[in-house]
Design a protein around this nucleic acid. Sequence first.
DNA 1: TAGATTGTCTAGCGGTGCTAAGATCCGGCC
DNA 2: GGCCGGATCTTAGCACCGCTAGACAATCTA
Lengths: 185, 185
Amino acid sequence: MPTPSRRERAREERRDLILRTARELAESDGWDAVTTRRLAEAVDYSQPVLYSHFRNMDAIVGAVALGGFVELADALRAGRESDGLHGVACAYLDYAEQHPAMYDAMFVRRTDLVFGTAETLEPLKTAFNEIRQAVEPAAPTDPETATEVFWSALHGQATLNHGTRLRPTHHTNRITYLITHLFGT
Amino acid sequence: MPTPSRRERAREERRDLILRTARELAESDGWDAVTTRRLAEAVDYSQPVLYSHFRNMDAIVGAVALGGFVELADALRAGRESDGLHGVACAYLDYAEQHPAMYDAMFVRRTDLVFGTAETLEPLKTAFNEIRQAVEPAAPTDPETATEVFWSALHGQATLNHGTRLRPTHHTNRITYLITHLFGT
DNA sequence: TAGATTGTCTAGCGGTGCTAAGATCCGGCC
DNA sequence: GGCCGGATCTTAGCACCGCTAGACAATCTA
């Protein structure tokens, strides 16, 4: 059956094109600039085509965010393997700073992505697990709580760095302060 | 000059009415439901009246947020005076949980409110100072960094509590974990 | 009371997410 | 080859959004 697979391949390619384009638009002009009209024009199709691939605009943002979790998980693993807790923290905050639109889609914008339950999608779990694996040796008594606290602290710094709500000059100071005091090394 | 003051009084009352109504709408249905049309109808005026009091919709949200900072500063002071660091942390997270729409306007939604500079408005400074005053005795070496780290950690927990991204059952565990490890008491 | 100022409304602009209905393409069958 | 039926794409439009110009009414000044 060569014909249905070719169609499906074409569909998937177009789906990827939509997601890639949405991400590019968001990263250059922010998510507010990602409208159905602009996105449709950028991929050179009409608006209804978007809706043959995704239920609505939020689903597009969610799909882009899902790709971000894969990227983030990779970055966290690399950071952990090279520099443990400190590496994870830097990788997390670097990702948030260098991909603010992605971070928005993943953690700030209201999404229907499920966290912390059985239905949680795989990339989310592995990203969270990377943090947990780095935390575990440093906090063996209650690693789950320690991971949540650590992640929250990183998330707080990531979002408050954006805008001038924390002193940009003391970025690394905050990381070391957090790690040394939370995990005592 | 009784007449201009009466006009001004009427203006201010209407301004307050707009802000009160905007807040009520946001707290019951979320900020997405606060549109110029709905807000105008709720205060029983036409849309252009809103624009004779505020430059645009963002300015309305910002004005509501400003009121939130006063409230938050009061709550933080009460928490600090009754239970120090722990009291501040609980007051902060309680406020965020009980007034999610306000917290959104103050810290999550993109605003033009300025942080950490000379032009920062008074209520923001006093709210931040409440946290700082609680942190200072526990972290005398670098209280500024300690305050930023502590505040970020609280902010992270506040935003991630919203949605099921952290285990609701371990809410207080995270607070005590954070305080004991960050400040060692 | 006449004029000027202020306040308010109606109507409308260009934009948004999303959808119904018709046109068009294309593989499969006779 | 010629036709059919389903998948695919587009045009056109709905109801809503933030925001504003211009007409009209109310109020203060002189």
